[in-house]
């Protein structure tokens, strides 16, 4: 349903040129939820902007819902839906009015547009707020309306660019529920997120992007398995001490604030080695635990191995 072939985007020229996306290729099957995971500036949103025809690629191509990005942008616009990082809503409109207008603009007749408006308001739980101005909506309500607006044309492919960024946990959960409904409906979804938990929860497969490139692809389980069976987690009183511990332990240890996590194939054996190393260096941890790896560990391991910070 989505086939991306060596897609690249360069901004600027000469010495000032920035390669935001570097020859990215991937495939998303029909009905699959595919997560693009990466830190800020990894190239996720630029990729989505190109695939939704909002940004012309520098090179490469893609086929989306059967249409070529290079030769049939209009076909793609008719077949896909997009809820981008910043919601694209007119604050002066009423929620219901906006959905009805969009339905008309996609070619529904007046009666069908009203029907579609009501379907979508029910889907995102905004029926009671249909007659309120969008400017009066909360952040979570706007996100849900934006998602509804992206679904007006019954898209075969849906792009969700960081759909829950900045939302409170309850609103995030509501969006996740709605994506769950989409999964059941067979919509193909490309989802970008900085939240590893979100990708773990929603995506069938995940591609990790760093510095404009896809550096790892697989199901969340595959990616986690690639790290080993266990993760050792050590907490320290200060970040400086945690940093010192990382340098004493060495790769693949990675730090997130005052916490150091170490993926390991044989957790108990590695734990004994780590404790020995820290004792030798005179470093004391405030807590210590052994657990299963998460997508956080995959992501941090990749970022650490590329020598990049995650900005947090």
């Amino acid at each position: 349903m989505i086939e991306v072939d060596r897609l690249s985007k360069r901004f600027g020229s000469g010495d000032d040129a920035v390669d935001a996306v570097k020859s990215v290729s991937f495939k998303v099957d029909q009905g699959e939820i595919f997560g693009l995971l990466g830190a800020n500036g990894a190239g996720k949103s630029t990729t989505v902007l190109m695939l939704t025809t909002l940004l012309a690629p520098t090179s490469g191509d893609a086929r989306i819902a059967g249409y070529s990005l290079s030769s049939d942008g209009a076909g793609i616009r008719r077949s896909v839906g997009a809820a981008l990082q910043d919601t694209g809503l007119d604050p002066m409109q009423k929620g219901g009015g906006l959905l009805e207008l969009h339905a008309r603009l996609f070619g529904f007749d007046r009666k069908a547009a009203i029907h579609r408006r009501d379907e979508l308001l029910d889907l995102v739980g905004l029926r009671d707020a249909a007659d309120r101005r969008i400017g009066e909506y909360s952040g979570g309500m706007r996100r849900r309306l934006d998602l509804a607006a992206a679904l007006v044309n019954r898209p075969r492919v849906l792009f969700l660019d960081e759909p829950t960024t900045g939302l409170d946990p309850a609103s995030r959960r509501a969006i996740w529920d709605e994506v769950g409904v989409l999964r059941e409906s067979g919509v193909t979804v490309l989802l970008t997120t900085q939240y590893l938990e979100e990708a773990d929860q929603l995506a069938d497969r995940v591609a990790i992007m760093a510095d404009g490139e896809i550096v790892s692809t697989g199901t969340p389980a595959e990616l986690k398995a690639g790290l080993g069976a266990d993760v050792i987690e050590l907490a320290f009183d200060e970040e400086g001490v945690a940093e010192e511990a990382v340098s004493v332990i060495g790769p693949p240890a990675n730090r997130l604030g005052q916490v150091v996590r170490i993926p390991a194939a044989d957790g108990p054996a590695e734990l004994a080695r780590v404790v020995g190393l820290l004792k030798e260096a005179g470093i004391e941890s405030s807590s210590l635990s052994l657990s299963q790896p998460t997508l956080d560990d995959v992501f941090l391991n990749i970022v650490e191995s590329r020598g990049e910070g995650v900005g947090r």
């Binding site: 008719r78 070619g107 529904f108 069908a112 029907h115 979508l120 679904l151 075969r156 409906s185």
Partner: peptide, 11 residues
């Protein structure tokens, strides 16, 4: 509601 199915469709 079904987000992709249904009896009404765009042109």
């Amino acid at each position: 509601a079904n987000p992709v199915g249904g009896d009404s469709a765009p042109r």
